[in-house]
Design a protein around this nucleic acid. Structure first.
Lengths: 188, 188
DNA sequence: CAGTAATTAAGACTAGGTACTAATAGTAGT
DNA sequence: ACTACTATTAGTACCTAGTCTTAATTACTG
């Protein structure tokens, strides 16, 4: 159990990282050293005390909450919409959207942006995707900004066809044709 | 500033709700009452102390983080996989996956499950979706468990076709054919 | 074996509380 | 006017999970 200082300290960092809720007392027990040693370690490594750590996690959460609510409705940020006609949204590809290995955006995020835009453009309280035919024409990398444009191409009874073209720097990266189902026909 | 008890208490709830990081002392000042009054109020309303509140917020965050990490890799839980052959994942539709109005799962989540399964089944470090043809055959409601089964139907050079069928209680809800691109052909 | 590094201990103090007891102020009922 | 009751305030002891400081002990190394 007893390791040298360096080993203990690097383990300490790991331990606290994947469980910030652990007290000095628990850490002391875990590493079979005194509480004071743990405190010296934290001092050297400038790891804040339990309560401060918890506070940081909570603060991050609090910020995220505000951020993740709109994401639940439309993936990407809606910047223009004409119901039953056209809509535009932008989506910035960040770390959490890409494969770790190659920083290429995972397909379902591009799909999600396009699909939610297709849903949003329809002037109905209930719009569902029935079919979709999609092409990923170029891979999108982390840091790129995807602009999706939706265009309603036909409305027939309860079916609406929407075409979505997403591009980065005017280069098409995704193209999809969505066959949408709506509960009510428009203007009735 | 001085309101009656009821008014103060309902304001207290609101205040703490949109800023859980406020101390009793600050609250006392805000409502021009003593710290003890605030503590009695919290007791009556069963609002926990600052540190407990912060901890709850942090814990919620921490759960989410753990939850969202695997989500980043495969949407749904992988329960079986034979590389370049078949794979199965399950996905429980929860509150955060549905439209608020009608509790129907948003299409992109079903797509994400299927798409990430199609990526996973391919025995290559780089697999990207090139094209997909998908059908949402039945709407999925909150609380339902979607079982997605992927089957590799052809491998040709750098292209692999994967069929994914997702079902709830043995009833097909989603069907997709994914045309996947891989960086290396298998077994070379 | 001395000298330094690492560890442990002990004591005083802090924030932000809980739990409990007690005093005071204000108001309504009879 | 007296009583009953509610609301508010005050004060004390105690708690957790620390900080900061001083000091003693132990371990390792040249």
């Amino acid at each position: 159990m007893k390791r040298n200082k360096k080993e203990r300290q690097s383990l300490l960092i790991e331990t606290i990282q994947d469980n910030p809720f652990i007290t000095d007392e628990d850490l002391a027990e875990k590493f079979s050293v005194s509480v004071q040693t743990i405190r010296l370690d934290r001092l050297e490594l400038s790891i804040p005390e339990l309560r401060e750590r918890i506070k940081h996690v909570a603060e991050k959460n609090f910020e995220d909450e505000v951020k993740s609510l709109p994401i639940d409705e439309v993936i990407g940020e809606m910047i223009d919409i004409q119901l039953d006609s056209t809509a535009i949204s932008i989506f910035d590809v960040k770390e959490e959207h890409v494969f770790k290995r190659n920083k290429i955006a995972r397909g379902h995020h591009l799909f999600a942006q396009a699909n939610s835009l297709a849903v949003a453009v329809i002037n109905d309280e209930l719009a569902l995707t029935a079919k979709a035919n999609i092409h990923f024409t170029r891979s999108v990398k982390q840091g790129e900004r995807v602009i999706a444009k939706a265009r309603v191409i036909s409305i027939e009874n309860d079916r609406t066809k929407v075409e979505v073209i997403s591009s980065v720097n005017n280069e098409c990266v995704f193209k999809g044709e969505f066959d949408m189902f709506r509960s009510h026909s428009p203007e009735q």
